[in-house]
Amino acid sequence: WEITFERNGKRITVRTTDHRLLELFEKLWRNGADERELERLAEEINR
């Protein structure tokens, strides 16, 4: 799966075969987690 999240013109794409990681990322994104931390998390998930 691949999903791109966008907020205030900032886009972060997450790619993984584990839908649970996408759900976790989406919850953090929707709850306003720090964008720098989300970028780092996305990099780890995308590996």
Rank of each mutant, 00 (worst) to 15 (best):
W1T: 06
W1F: 11
W1Y: 12
E2V: 10
E2P: 02
E2Y: 09
I3P: 01
I3S: 06
I3R: 14
I3N: 04
I3D: 01
T4R: 03
T4K: 03
E6W: 09
E6K: 03
E6V: 14
R7V: 15
R7M: 12
R7E: 02
N8E: 07
N8Q: 05
N8L: 04
G9F: 02
G9C: 04
G9V: 00
G9L: 02
G9R: 02
R11D: 03
R11L: 13
R11E: 07
R11F: 15
R11G: 05
I12C: 03
T13C: 04
T13W: 03
T13D: 01
T13I: 10
V14Y: 03
V14L: 15
R15I: 09
R15Y: 12
R15H: 06
R15W: 07
T16W: 06
T16I: 09
T17R: 13
T17G: 10
D18R: 04
D18S: 11
D18T: 04
D18W: 04
H19L: 15
H19F: 15
H19Q: 14
H19D: 05
H19M: 15
R20W: 09
R20Y: 11
R20T: 12
R20S: 12
R20A: 13
R20G: 09
L21N: 03
L21T: 04
L21I: 08
L22G: 02
L22S: 02
L22I: 12
L22V: 10
L22C: 04
L22F: 12
E23M: 15
E23T: 12
E23I: 12
L24I: 11
L24F: 12
L24H: 09
F25H: 00
F25S: 00
E26G: 03
E26Q: 11
E26M: 15
K27H: 12
K27I: 13
K27L: 14
L28K: 06
L28E: 06
L28T: 05
L28I: 08
W29S: 02
W29M: 06
R30N: 12
N31H: 09
G32R: 04
G32D: 04
D34L: 15
D34Y: 09
D34E: 08
D34W: 15
D34M: 15
E35T: 12
E35G: 06
E35R: 03
R36S: 14
R36W: 15
R36A: 15
R36G: 13
R36Q: 14
E37I: 14
E37D: 12
L38R: 01
L38Y: 03
L38K: 01
E39S: 10
E39G: 05
E39F: 10
E39C: 08
R40D: 09
R40S: 11
R40M: 13
R40L: 14
R40N: 12
L41A: 05
L41S: 01
L41W: 08
A42Y: 05
A42E: 03
A42L: 12
E43C: 08
E43I: 09
E43M: 10
E43F: 06
E43S: 09
E43R: 09
E44R: 12
E44C: 15
E44G: 04
I45K: 01
I45A: 04
N46F: 09
N46G: 05
N46V: 07
N46S: 09
R47Y: 08
R47C: 07
R47N: 14
R47K: 14
R47D: 07
